[in-house]
Nucleic acid binder design. Structure first.
Lengths: 253, 253
DNA sequence: CGAGAACTTGATAGTGCTCAAACGAGGTGG
DNA sequence: CCACCTCGTTTGAGCACTATCAAGTTCTCG
């Protein structure tokens, strides 16, 4: 959208921790060649497919999801603009989950060779890509912690805290408001809850005047209270804004 | 233990998918220089620490764990011999979780430079390391699916199915029996259940004559029934033994 | 043999699920 | 412009899976 700077959200994201030269930035733009529009609900790659390209989300939201035989499903990751779907997926035989666009999305399809070229183009870029990979892993682990050990209310709150940080990094959230185009069913699939229960947790957060939800737009009214409810410690997002909220863990037994 | 072949469980694991030359195998052994004994319950690296080395488990079991402020904790990964704790962790500022030995363990501490040397020593090794990294990610995601969408019984069963495959790869399980030195509380921390409930699920599996648990040793009596209960599809472990159980997912909505 | 850790089991409570129905908003065709 | 249809949200009632609390019991090891 902004033509003066790079329109590449990946650059914005990597700048979170890396000092990218204009040349690095230009190199990253080389990834954006084969851009495809994926309509809302469209599949980018399906379980069982053999991956041949790497995917980079440029616009819209994409979910990593796994369907179970009973018909239920779990969203194991939300990919925002600037996020990759598996940097080296082409090494694997077949996909064990699928990637679906949750809203109309733009996705760059990148050949592994091109990716490798870019990846090793400079020390800063290599390092930034590794950071990005480790961040993705950290996010999945944080989700596992949420789903395994937090209450429904805390899970929903925690997801919002995370999204606020991630969206801010790519310029998609400013201040206290962000667009979260997820249905309550999708929120449930991401947090391991049912849509009915998500609805009740949202109402609780609204009644407590912690957040305001209106038409896919979330306004965080009381950020510190939201983080308290969530037990949110941004350390795992490994950014510069981490500061403040250090964890107070205490080993047991 | 077996002096004739490489005593390096990493080699055994990577051979699952890679054709490693004797030279590759020797290169991998170079990682095993600074080996430390970690007693049961000992911490390898703690939340908040700045990682300076990569860790490779050689013997024993190690858990990735995250403590929450309420005192509860979630195990987000079980590292068996041959498993790395974060190939490039040194890129990150500080650990967002800790690594603890669940039994007496031997862990190789590897400098990032040495690791990089080995990593790029041959095309086969580079590829094998990537496979290993992607596998780790896939396992976390599978745990997330379990905890988010499976019943307590299925979660416990699924973990056993996974461990059976992983232990077999490094020669620690033969046939239907494996040593699983986890307390019921630790099983609970891994599956998002309480120790009491784990106990009941184990009893259910035992009463159904699906598994036999005795003194930290598990014998799988009815493998296909265990996999049915778990909804286990080994595809995510991306090995050659994947074969048989293809998933039958059916997208919804 | 004693002490502590881990396992078992029972009773009770509660968080979150299931089933059901009504309501609201957006889109489409008449 | 309105009827109608669909998808998503909202709310209620009842239930079930899993947590919590509380003893016992068994195992392990010094």
């Amino acid at each position: 959208m902004d033509e003066s700077a790079s329109a590449n959200p990946l650059t914005a994201k990597l700048r979170t921790i890396a000092d990218l030269s204009p040349r690095d930035s230009a190199t990253l733009d080389r990834l954006v060649q084969d851009v495809r529009d994926i309509p809302s609900g469209g599949t980018i790659i399906d379980e069982g497919d053999r991956p041949t390209r790497i995917h980079l989300v440029l616009a819209g939201w994409v979910a990593r999801m796994k369907y179970l035989s009973g018909g239920s499903r779990q969203i194991t990751g939300l990919l925002l603009p600037g996020d990759f779907c598996n940097l080296h997926a082409t090494i694997l035989d077949e996909m064990d989950h699928s990637m679906t666009a949750l809203v109309d999305a733009k996705v760059a399809f990148v050949a592994q060779d091109l990716l490798d070229d870019v990846l090793f183009s400079s020390r800063a870029v290599t390092r930034a890509f590794w950071w990005s990979t480790l961040l993705d892993e950290a996010i999945v682990r944080a989700w596992l912690v949420s789903v395994g050990r937090r209450s429904g209310l805390a899970r929903v709150a925690h997801l919002f805290c995370e999204l606020q940080v991630r969206l801010t990094r790519v310029g998609l959230a400013t201040g206290d408001t962000m667009v979260v185009p997820l249905t309550q069913e999708q929120l449930g699939d991401a947090t391991g809850l049912t849509s009915v229960h998500v609805n009740r947790m949202l109402r609780t957060l609204r009644d407590a005047e912690v957040i305001d939800v209106y038409r896919g737009r979330i306004r965080i009214i009381d950020s510190s209270e939201l983080r308290r409810i969530a037990g949110f410690d941004p350390t795992y997002l490994h950014g510069p804004e981490t500061g403040a909220g250090k964890s107070q863990h205490r080993p047991r037994g």
